[in-house]
Design a protein around this nucleic acid. Sequence first.
DNA 1: CCCTGGCACTCCATGGTCACGAGTGCCAGA
DNA 2: TCTGGCACTCGTGACCATGGAGTGCCAGGG
Lengths: 338, 338
Amino acid sequence: MLSERRLEVLRAIVQDYVGTEEPVGSKALTERHRLGVSPATVRNDMAALEEEGFIAQPHTSAGRIPTDKGYRLFVDRLAGVKPLSTPERRAIQSFLDSAVDLDDVVSRTVRLLAQLTRQVAVVQYPSLTRSTVRHVELLLLSPTRVMLVVITDTGRVEQRMVDCPAPVGEIALADLRARLNSRVVGHRFTDVPQLVQDLHESFEQGDRGTVSTVVATLLETLVEETEERLMIGGTANLTRFGHDFPLVIRPVLEALEEQVVLLKLLGEAKDSAVTVRIGHENAHEGLNSTSVVAVGYGSGDEAVGKLGVVGPTRMDYPGTMGAVRAVARYVGQILAES
Amino acid sequence: MLSERRLEVLRAIVQDYVGTEEPVGSKALTERHRLGVSPATVRNDMAALEEEGFIAQPHTSAGRIPTDKGYRLFVDRLAGVKPLSTPERRAIQSFLDSAVDLDDVVSRTVRLLAQLTRQVAVVQYPSLTRSTVRHVELLLLSPTRVMLVVITDTGRVEQRMVDCPAPVGEIALADLRARLNSRVVGHRFTDVPQLVQDLHESFEQGDRGTVSTVVATLLETLVEETEERLMIGGTANLTRFGHDFPLVIRPVLEALEEQVVLLKLLGEAKDSAVTVRIGHENAHEGLNSTSVVAVGYGSGDEAVGKLGVVGPTRMDYPGTMGAVRAVARYVGQILAES
DNA sequence: CCCTGGCACTCCATGGTCACGAGTGCCAGA
DNA sequence: TCTGGCACTCGTGACCATGGAGTGCCAGGG
């Protein structure tokens, strides 16, 4: 067990190192923090902390640097989440309020997060897996060409062209439209497949091909729509990684271009609380020297998406967590309103 | 006027420097290239080339490095466009052929360009300024809520919700739909505003508010749709910038995040021929140590969009130009087919 | 007139030495 | 259990010497 003071020393080390980006020694520590003990005592504490693996020295006779484990302890037990100032909150709100559509909300959120945290921001588009169908529309563009439009309860609209195997008339189409709607309206995307499974059976032989094609396209559209997309920004902040950054930055950039990796990363975050993954806690190798701070956002109690930032393990955790949490809240509000 | 041999020397310098990334001296040049003259002669030529501003030396008694002006001459007069190999072409084609929709085409193109050139790729979405309206659909979702759907001749579909100032009936809506279509179908986006200008006048007083709202939303949609968007990729290749890259990379990353800057950059490219902007020829300051190779792509003779790459001025121009040109061609083909 | 070999000069890069200072570990004493 | 003191370790930066690559210039030859 670590004594109270040793934890205090660890906290001081983390804070100083985050600020100066340089290994911190016992003397400097006692000068910058009111620990009430001498450097020699701090040295003993440091030795103990190193023994436990919370800090390390780059080389003998250099100051100490927090390890991933040290940051973990710091985040879990020593640091709170630093709330944003009132002006900051106001700025966030007004910036997000002026968004005109979903794309705009997401892109503004990314820029906001990047600017607030001075790190790389990642925002997942709101997931539609829980969306329901509000209306399905079919338009006859030519005898064998139908446009399929799906409207969701979130106000999102998707459309697709359908080439029919045989000419189709307005009347048959109206019939299909009506039956389709009566079956799927109000239901979740995920339930649609079984709801329309045997729809073609209730049609005449001649129209079955068309019905099947339309239904298939509808299912395709819904599946594709629930695919998760995301937006990133603030990559210029990667230059803040530190001196050795040429080596670090490449795998990070590569990881950032792999949407799959990022989605997995965000997916690991809990919905409700800010989740922090530090250094090697990240499964992806290229991100071993970065930390990911993420949280879910949503209009109600359920998260409809996640957002977060990627930065050096040496980051201001309380501030970053505060910013991420605040942005997630406001995004949730905005989405609930629209 | 520069003699033939001096141009040959410049070409050799550019080629060597691009390959080695180190200042090239007279002796090394004569060894690696069959110039048929001695180092001393080359030195004289170099002095002349330096006098004219085509090359420079980082410090006295170091080798020479091409200047922006030197690269310019190289691109204009000394280097051809290196065509891709047949396997490369085949790979491009099959990779692009498997794209399923427009977004996919663009994203595949970006990845392709980045991989082929090993540089940062930028692809502009096909512009819709020349598109025409194929069909306008209005759907009554609730008494005061109408969905507006616009279908373009390129198969693209856009939709928007309209909140009407007063309840509207199916009949009035059908009327509006018919008149709207008869006016705008087949016309270009840019012509639509004046075509629908006085449309509301032919409606009864009670419906005019709705008509105006719908028309306004239609115009909004078309304007927004013609807004230019783009996609970038391969930012990990920024690490190939060279030793001094920490200083160079930040402004480049910043510029890449500014869509406006990039659009302007691409906009400066000619439609039909591969355009190269070298170093300080780029208006944007952050890109003063980069070169931009861009070209328009299109399904017919007209360009519907542009694409290109951003890389260090020290780049393989013939190869890059070849790749950019080839990709643009195939993208044009793909778009023409769909 | 142009090319060539020779020569002196410049300057960067490399590597070695050295002193300094920050930081540590340990120990004896309060 | 804390503290002050002390010896020790190492990385850093300054300084210097050396080597080598490259240049500019000049005189001589085709």
